[in-house]
Design a protein around this nucleic acid. Sequence first.
DNA 1: TCAAAATATTTCAAGCTTGCATAGTTAGAA
DNA 2: TTCTAACTATGCAAGCTTGAAATATTTTGA
Lengths: 145, 145
Amino acid sequence: MGRMTPRPEPHTTAERTLCSLVNGLAQQITDHVRERALTLGLTAAQATALREMSGPMTMRELAELMTCEPSNATFVVDKLEKQGLVERRAHPTDRRAKHLVLTAEGAATRERLLGLLAQDAPLAGLSPEQQDALQGLLEQAIARS
Amino acid sequence: MGRMTPRPEPHTTAERTLCSLVNGLAQQITDHVRERALTLGLTAAQATALREMSGPMTMRELAELMTCEPSNATFVVDKLEKQGLVERRAHPTDRRAKHLVLTAEGAATRERLLGLLAQDAPLAGLSPEQQDALQGLLEQAIARS
DNA sequence: TCAAAATATTTCAAGCTTGCATAGTTAGAA
DNA sequence: TTCTAACTATGCAAGCTTGAAATATTTTGA
């Protein structure tokens, strides 16, 4: 006869617990963004994009910062552009690329957003030392790819 | 005149870096699930649901384990039910609730899925001690709510 | 006992995300 | 130079996710 899979989960349990925790915390962060962004009439995705736009960049760079596919960045920037917060300009040296630039209103909205996001931020439950430790562990985990 | 926002980001930077790392790792975990699940003809969401179904449970409990809204669990379980992997039965004591149970095929698929997910799992780049440390930090961060 | 509040699930609309296909552009090899 | 492979952005289809509304049932408390 074959195996009977007696123990529920041999040793993978710890790893899956960890994955659930990472996922749960990420969800909590997104929820926090969503809640704060609502105040400004932005969705979570739009707020994330705006948050990452610390200066002119290409669509691909934005997608990288948002940790999403470029086609998704297109979708989100479309919305921001319709709201007059972002402009797509010609890239100075690469005609394939677009140069994303915040409008005056976009920059102002971004400032307000950053202020809101800093309030009651998740991770506030960790001391600076713990945050450092967490950062180190996360960087190492991500690097393993 | 008002402020000139001289420094890009005063002290919030560290916290946002941390959020990006958490988000990036969560994304990496999801990508891993997506890739492995494809082998079994499952989407990432379906695989996540199946993975969490270690025994009979209600829709709400599943949603909790999946870290999503109950309405989303309904959507995903609909798919699993159409594939014959899960059944919605009457709950033994609460007629409002459904009792989710894996079919024989569902249980077999879940076993295969767990095996696939254990291969090349993210977080393998961390030693057991580091995983423990990470778990502690994540639990504390999540608890802060 | 009974009405009100709470809970479990589902449906629906709106928005998000991925993966693939396409057009235009650039860079590098032959 | 010329040609090919790689790269940038976008359009689209399919699937995921949320939030609000609706239904059925249970629980609470007067």
